[in-house]
Design a protein around this nucleic acid. Structure first.
Lengths: 202, 202
DNA sequence: ACCTGAACACCGTTCAAGT
DNA sequence: ACCTGAACACCGTTCAAGT
């Protein structure tokens, strides 16, 4: 008969994969990806140092899985931020930007891991797809803006490059947290305003 | 009597610090910062694995020194790009952006190292200063733009946040190299145009 | 001053073996 | 199926010692 997860450990951990991912994320945020050791994780979780092998082919595979969960969470957040049916396009854009910034501020190390995905040569297909999905919400927003006459006509995916660059950079800056004592969250609307102005028909 | 650096190795390497930094940059760009090993570097340079200690307190110190040289080089490139006395402000801005993008494309791993400086808690003062200098060329350009009426009035350092975000993001995207088969260098002017439009008085 | 060799405490990964 | 222990080939860092 199967026992609850809260039991004192049986021979089979029962939830090792999840436990490892959870422990990994904690030390990732606390001490960075380079300080993360599979052996240490195993110790924390109370399992031999060769056990992770069953669930993750190697250390990179564990980091990939972690990034994957990050993309899932980001996706949910972005979907929620975009779903809100506000009339004002500028507000919609701001909500979208705010969602990115919030996520990155909440999980800075995970965010870096997610960004690295694009640059890593041998990343698994599944992960690359998740990455593409997360970083390609721009064109849809641009089309929206064009539909309501707030964005100049032109190839949406090309125009969204401007939007994407601005957002990525904004997040990159925001990871520093503050600017002259003002929290980045406060600055987002102003920056988004300028981004939008640059894309506006004149 | 002192001998030339090209001599077959004497007991004292004579140029160990430089040799280590050079070897480090090669393997950094080839295989990333996490694959960089002091012992391997020592082997390549032909010295015992404890020798680097004389020149770098630890591995991080070597990476810091590497980042420092990066900032020096970037600084020279930015200075050159800004010095060109072109009349058109948009062109000046584009040259500036182009310089960033070129540097990051040429030394992607070094660029990441340089960016990390800001987020690393115990970075040495000297390095933080170099980082600040490299990432704070914006306000001066904004003031320039305001002087010729191309940029809205307002706190230059605050306005340059928009510029800085766009540039950082642009670089981040450009590290991917291509967009629909078009090199990023070709796309920079268009993106800068939109950035500038967003900052323009109306 | 600058470099070396041995030693220590860690890694990731592999593999035969246990339950 | 899932986990373990011993073994291998690496690390970074320290320290007494050599030239």
């Amino acid at each position: 008969m199967p026992r609850l997860k809260t039991d004192s450990r049986p021979y089979h951990h029962g939830n090792l994969r999840q436990a490892l991912l959870q422990a990994a994320e904690m030390t990732l945020e606390a001490r960075g990806a380079s300080d993360l050791s599979l052996r240490e994780l195993s110790r924390e979780v109370g399992v031999s140092h060769t056990s992770p092998r069953r669930h993750f082919a190697d250390k990179q595979a564990l980091l990939d899985a972690l990034a994957q969960t990050g993309f899932q969470r980001l996706d949910a957040i972005l979907a929620k931020a975009t779903k809100k049916r506000v009339r004002n396009f500028a507000t919609r854009l701001t909500n979208f930007a705010q969602a990115y910034v919030e996520f990155a501020l909440k999980h800075p190390a995970l965010w870096v891991l997610m960004l690295d995905t694009k640059h890593r040569p041998g990343a698994p297909r599944e992960l690359l797809e998740a990455s593409d999905a997360a970083f390609s919400k721009g064109p849809a927003l641009i089309k929206e803006g064009q539909a309501v006459g707030e964005v100049v006509p032109g190839d949406p995916s090309r125009l969204s490059l401007t939007l994407g660059a601005a957002l990525l950079g904004l997040v990159s800056i925001s990871t520093d947290g503050k600017f002259k004592g003002v929290s980045i969250e406060t600055l987002v609307p102003g920056i988004v305003k300028h981004i939008l102005l640059g894309l506006r028909p004149r």
